[in-house]
Computed example of a mutant assay.
Amino acid sequence: MNEKVAAVGRGISLAYEEVGDGEPLVLVGGLGQQLHSWPDAFCEQFAERGYRVVRFDNRDIGRSTHEDFRPAKLWSMLVGRFPERQYDLADMAEDTIGLFDAIGFDSAHVVGVSMGGMIAQTVAARHPDRVRTLTSIMSNTGTRRAGRPALSTLRLMAAAPPKARDAAMDRAVRMFRHIGSHGFPFDEDWVRAQAGRGWDRDSSSAGTGRQLGSILKSGDRTPSLRSVKAPTLVIHGDRDRMVHPTGGAATVRAITGARLETIPGMGHDLPKGAWPRLVDLIDTHARTPRSTDARDTTAS
């Protein structure tokens, strides 16, 4: 996959990569996660099934445009005080649509994870004609009543950002041992390699704070999600300490006809052991876009 950069409007450029040829499949990353948070081999499995897969850095991360204002402190965000230039999830959704336009996609299957799920939901709500199917993974609706992080997770998130590559890798291991999929093997070497790769591409930390501001500024998006028309699949693990599984349930309630798949043992990551199930779920959903069976299925 060769990295490219596209101007997507409003002074924003996004770094992206693509692999495969066929049905457009756009992968939207989570908070502070660069494009390689969608693992190479994971993307290649979709390419092998006939998709043109695009993964990208959201604004303020990786090699995409970084804003230059100081992010608000967490306590300020929680009481609704944000810098004048603070963007929201709708702005990030427009970035995604701008990438569609730059690449030449009239529409695409859109898959988002965590904050990326929130962005994907917003794209589907604001641009129903551009989304063939929507898959929202380990995400929520923004309501304060569902999908909240565990207190132990918040304590880890509050730690000072790392100032060196080795420290960034150590922090990633601590975090993913906590929020990761306890029902699947933990690959420390892979986590370290991913974190090192991320540091080499972008060692800044302020962008993650601004992205968090976009989530909190957007508030409860439940009313807007009523307008989503795309066939929607919601995937959540039952061991998620970052976005409690109630976030997935709330998303299903908010989007008419959405279907929930719960994967036992999965936390807030994409463990290799879950890839076969995840790829099958997303592929089947994309190939049967009129299936709107709104039941909760526990994956085996």
Rank of each mutant, 00 (worst) to 15 (best):
N58W: 01
N58S: 08
R59H: 06
R59W: 09
R59P: 04
R59I: 09
R59C: 05
R59V: 05
R59M: 10
D60G: 05
D60Y: 03
I61L: 14
I61G: 00
I61A: 08
R63S: 13
S64N: 10
S64I: 06
T65D: 02
T65W: 01
H66S: 07
H66W: 07
H66C: 07
H66D: 06
E67T: 11
E67R: 12
F69I: 07
R70I: 03
P71A: 11
P71F: 05
P71H: 10
K73L: 11
L74R: 13
L74H: 08
L74I: 14
L74K: 14
L74A: 14
W75S: 14
W75N: 13
W75G: 08
W75M: 12
W75E: 15
S76E: 15
V79I: 15
R81A: 05
R81M: 08
F82R: 06
F82S: 05
F82T: 03
P83C: 02
P83A: 03
E84Q: 15
E84P: 00
R85W: 04
R85P: 02
R85M: 13
R85V: 07
Q86T: 05
Y87G: 01
D88G: 15
D88P: 03
L89H: 05
A90Q: 12
A90H: 10
D91N: 10
D91R: 10
M92I: 15
E94L: 09
D95H: 03
T96N: 04
T96S: 11
I97L: 15
I97P: 01
I97F: 11
G98F: 06
L99H: 06
L99G: 01
L99S: 01
D101H: 09
